[in-house]
Each structure stands twice: as C-alpha cells, then as structure tokens.
Design a protein around this nucleic acid. Structure first.
Lengths: 207, 207
DNA sequence: GGGTGTGAAAAACTTCACAGCG
DNA sequence: CGCTGTGAAGTTTTTCACACCC
C-alpha cells in the first residue's frame, strides 16, 4: 500500500504532526507513541499510524517514534528539508501582518520579496523587506522562488495570478475571496477568512 | 436522501456558491444553470446539483436557478439570514487586518468588540472599535454573541479559548498555530497560515 | 506487555446516468 | 429539448483488528 495514491488530508495531517513534534521537542521530550502524538494533534492513534504508513516505516514496533528522526522524516516527506523562499503580493493590512509573522521560519520558509501596486507603498521597507512595484513581478528569477502569498482584493487577483504563473510560480496561497484559474501544474490554496466565519452559524446547535 | 447526514464539504461548498451568487448578481445576472455556477466556483455541474439536493429543491427543472431565490435559500440554510456579531481576541497585526476588513458584512457578520491583553493597546480605538482588556471577556452577554475570532500566539490560545467557552461562545475561528481543546458542542476552525504554506512544497512537481 | 504497521471492513463522499419536469 | 433532482455505482478515506516486532 506504500506507493498507492496518498490522501490529501493525510498530507495536511502530516504537517500537523510536524507542528506537534516541534512543540514536544521544545518541551524536552525525545520520544512519543502514536497515542501521545494523536492526543497532541486531536486525532486517533490509528489515524497517525496509517498516515505514517503511507510514507514508510517511521517508528519502531513496541517502542514508538523518536522525535528527532520523526522530524527529519516528515520534513523530507513534505520537502521541507531545504530552505525555500516565497514572495508576497499585496502589502495591505493582511500583507503587513504576514510580513511581520515569524512563524514561517520553523518550516524553512522565508519571505524574500514583497510587491504592491500602490505608489505610496512602493519603496518603503516593512520588516526589512523593500516593497517593489507589481510590474517587477515579471523579473522574479524563475526557479529561485516557487511559492507566492496573495493578499490582495478579489478584483485584481486573477490578473496577478496570471502574472505569477508566467513568472514560474508553482504554488499560491491566496487570501483573495474568489476562485482563481491556473494551469493544472500550479497548486492554489485559497483561504477566504470571511467565508470560514460564515460557515460557522450552520453548525451552531442553537440560536 | 434529503435528510441524511450532509457532508461537511458540501456545506463548505455551499458558502462558495453563495460567494459566487453575490458576484454574479453584482454583474447584473439574474439566473444561472448548475453548469454556469459550477464554472464560476471551479467544480462540476453535478456536484452543484447534488450539493443543493441535500437541502431541498432549489432550482427549476429545465430552467435553472433564480439568483435572488438561490441567495435567500443558501443564506437560510447556512443560517446567515439574520445578522450576527462576533468578537475578536488579539489586536496584533493580524487582528488589526481583520478589524479593517470589510468582507464580513456581506454574510451578515459584524465584529462588535475587540480584546487584547496589552495595556498599551487597551482603550485605543481601531476601525471604530475600542479595544478592551481580555479580563472583560467574562462579561460578554451570553447568547448575544456566539462567534469569536482568535488572533493570538499559541502560548495563550488555550487559556483564552477556555475563557471564551465559559462565556458561552459556540464557534471559534482561530489563527493560533496550535490545536485547541473545546467541548464537543463548540466548533473550532483553525487556520494555521504558515502550515498551509508548508504543505505546498510536497505538491510542487519539480524542484 | 507495549506499541507499530497494515490488510480488510466500513463509512463517507463523488461521479454517473437518467427519469421527469417546465 | 434543456436542465434539475437523485438513486445507484464507483471511488476515496477512515476505522478496525490483529499479526508481528522490541
């Protein structure tokens, strides 16, 4: 079963396991069982083992998982074992928050450039990064950067995405509240914050 | 099949359909087929029809969907047919971005209070909302507000969540990069931005 | 005994194909 | 005829139970 198609959700959970591994290691823990890890993440122990089994034998029967090895293994699987750069397009409130956020580093990710179309903002430096005009997007050294974060309004999103695709970007994390059209080779993950809040009332038991 | 258990994913897509309906209506369109709507959202036509069929007969055979009726129906299904208030906890960069964002209104949602634990921030007014101390969370009129947005670091997240649960909050949209423990009756949606970016390299075909 | 790895069963979700309505 | 609504088939994902290893 090891080389069968792997569920997307298993990949998502793998990232959650990595997050948990880092937390446990910070606490000085060296070793976990699938049950411990499951508890930390909020899933079942057999789910953890099954997810891992898609990728190989990561633990030791009767013993559990060595956190150092597990961290290395998950990083390798998720291709986070080398440092990667991303660019940010849109330095509004959300864009600034993303630039200021230090949480990417632990996954080996770094924002190395920021773009905006507002002449007022271009040239300014936010968190050590000089904001460039969006017209400069065309000049991204293809292959050097494969990830982009999109924090712009829906109206201009598709236009910018087309530009990013031309520039050779392979993965886009978009906060624009709209669907985006890209070639099949490009992966888009859309996070529509308002929409996420909007689905909650459905689940509210009463009221 | 109408009253069987409805897939979570169908509910998520329902919100996407609503988003698309609003866009189409803005364009002056009054009427769509499942195929048109599917194209707008990026799914298949039969998926649209199946999703709708979980909730009733929303369209007219041979004709399609009336956008005004469809909007009303989806709003009713998602329980967005009355205005709701949410509170925000954590007025850092991300919290400010959320306060400034105007996209909640179209779903009938409004942020009516903001809280932070930083004395420097308490008392200040951001986007017309005065920031209160987190200790005031206890005084949220239970039942008046059932949704909360959490934009705080992982370290204090669980503590604040416990507080929110005590205050009667039923749904939490969390940007804290950690799992949260809540009673089963409370719904938590966690968005870990860095983790979403971190899962992308896995899917990058080359490099 | 304690704990992993995994085939097989069960459940959930998606896709299909077509009856039937306007 | 065009398009919806939906049972049934097909596929994916989760859950289970247990063989097997330390």
């Amino acid at each position: 079963m090891r080389y069968a198609r792997i569920p997307d959700q298993a990949v998502q959970r793998l990232a959650m396991y990595l997050r948990a591994v880092l937390v446990l290691q910070d606490r000085g823990i060296w070793h976990v069982s699938s049950k411990d890890l499951a508890g930390q993440v909020g899933v079942n122990d057999w789910q953890v083992r099954k997810d891992f089994s898609y990728f190989g034998e990561l633990g030791t029967p009767g013993v559990g998982y060595d956190l150092r090895k597990l961290q290395r293994d998950i990083r390798r699987i998720l291709r986070l074992d080398k440092k990667r750069s991303a660019i940010l397009v849109g330095v509004g409130n959300l864009g600034k928050a993303i630039l200021a956020y230090g949480g990417f580093a632990r996954y080996g990710l770094r924002i190395m450039a920021a773009f905006d179309n507002d002449p007022q903002k271009v040239g300014k430096v936010v968190n050590g990064i000089r904001i460039q005009d969006v017209s400069m997007l065309k000049r991204i050294a293809s292959g050097k950067v494969s990830l982009a974060i999109l924090a712009i309004p829906a109206a201009s999103a598709q236009e910018v995405v087309d530009c990013l695709v031309d520039a050779g970007i392979k993965g886009i994390l978009s906060f624009a509240p709209c669907p985006l059209k890209v070639p099949k080779k490009v992966r888009v993950v859309g996070i529509d914050i308002a929409m996420h809040l909007a689905t909650m009332p459905y689940y509210l038991s009463s009221d």
